[in-house]
Design a protein around this nucleic acid. Structure first.
Length: 314
DNA sequence: CTCGATCCCTGGACGC
DNA sequence: TGCGTCCAGGGATCGA
């Protein structure tokens, strides 16, 4: 699940390896999840990758204006443009020698002028890749929330404490903050001792500021460790990150809290699994955790279908 | 405004 | 060994 630190890691890797390269041609595999695959074939060839930027959870490969020669004298290719890349859950983007066989689920490959191919693979196809003009780019950008690495105390408090949604939902909402996903939301809430199901408006100014600080510290540290590799995240060099070894809450259901030894529990907040310490992070009234995936003992031992709704209404 | 439900998609884990 | 089911989750969308 590439979140901000993982996407930043990929972007840094791409900056080291593909800047200045020209795209020669584009090949397409399965394209049913791509908005406009033809635009990739039409508008990418001939352009140089001049910059790689990260914005929240997505990347922008900034492209030069295409040379106005050949059979495209001067159509839409005359202006700079961008290649938008969102890795979704399982997306990977990496340059590979063109001679090497393509990995399964390689959906887009861009032949570069040095004989490598910039390949986009995405097992589950939750990602997104699109050619954007200046206009469609600015349309993408509007509605994006604050950069969590840069957001000020005042701005963060305003975005959180004025809202009646659960804090977890707010952290995940890309129009509030761009780049935070399930892992770093849970990690920062644990560190700041705030229960994921609490309402944004119910956080004190002090709590909101603690959350902002911990979130920033965690994100910077995760970037330094090249992100978390929990399922299949690999950076542009095909290397996993290391931050998963530092998770304090995420994925630790049933294990002891690293501060107080209380058993870490899991509940559903904002439709997502949320891991928290019931003692360090006191929950709002009525919130109940999912039953621990326990031993099967009496009867069937199978938990029933409706037990899984461990969320709770406030 | 906020919520849950549903869909998209594949692979890994698990029960039998 | 194999089959069925559940689950992971970012984001869009729809109805309550």
């Amino acid at each position: 699940m590439p979140e901000l630190p993982e996407v930043e890691t990929v972007a840094r890797g791409l900056r080291e390896t593909i800047l200045g390269r020209r795209i020669v041609s584009v090949g397409l595999g399965k394209t049913d999840f791509i908005d406009d695959p033809v635009a990739l074939e039409e508008h990418l060839p001939g352009r140089t990758i001049e910059a790689v930027e990260r914005f929240g959870k997505f990347m922008l490969l900034k492209l030069s204006a295409a040379a106005p020669t050949e059979r495209a004298p001067s159509n839409g290719n005359a202006s700079p443009a961008s290649l938008f890349v969102h890795l979704g859950m399982t997306g990977q983007m990496a340059p590979t020698p063109a001679a090497l066989p393509k990995a399964k689920h390689t959906h887009v490959w861009m032949l570069l002028d040095d004989g490598r191919e910039l390949r986009y693979t995405d097992t589950r196809r939750f990602g997104r890749i699109a050619y954007l003009t200046k206009e469609s780019l600015s349309q993408e950008m509007e509605g994006q929330g604050a950069d969590p690495l840069e957001v000020t105390k005042e701005d963060f408090a305003r975005r959180i404490r004025s809202r009646r949604a659960r804090i977890k939902a707010l952290l995940l909402d890309q129009s509030v903050l761009r780049g935070v996903g399930n892992i770093y939301a849970d990690e920062s809430l644990w560190k700041a001792k705030i229960h994921p199901a609490r309402l944004g408006a119910k956080l004190s100014a002090k709590e909101a500021e603690a959350l902002r600080r911990e979130l920033q510290k965690i994100l910077w540290k995760a970037i330094a460790l090249r992100g978390s590799s929990i399922s299949d995240f690999l950076d542009a060099e095909g290397e996993p990150g290391e931050y998963q070894q530092h998770h304090r809450a995420y994925g630790r259901e049933g294990k002891g809290c690293l501060r107080c030894k209380t058993t870490i529990r899991r509940g559903i907040v904002a439709g997502r699994s949320s891991y928290y310490c019931p003692k360090c992070q006191p929950g709002p009234r009525g919130f109940s955790a999912l039953p621990l995936p326990g031993r099967k003992k009496k009867g069937t031992g199978r938990s029933t279908r409706n037990e899984k709704r461990g969320s709770a209404r406030l």
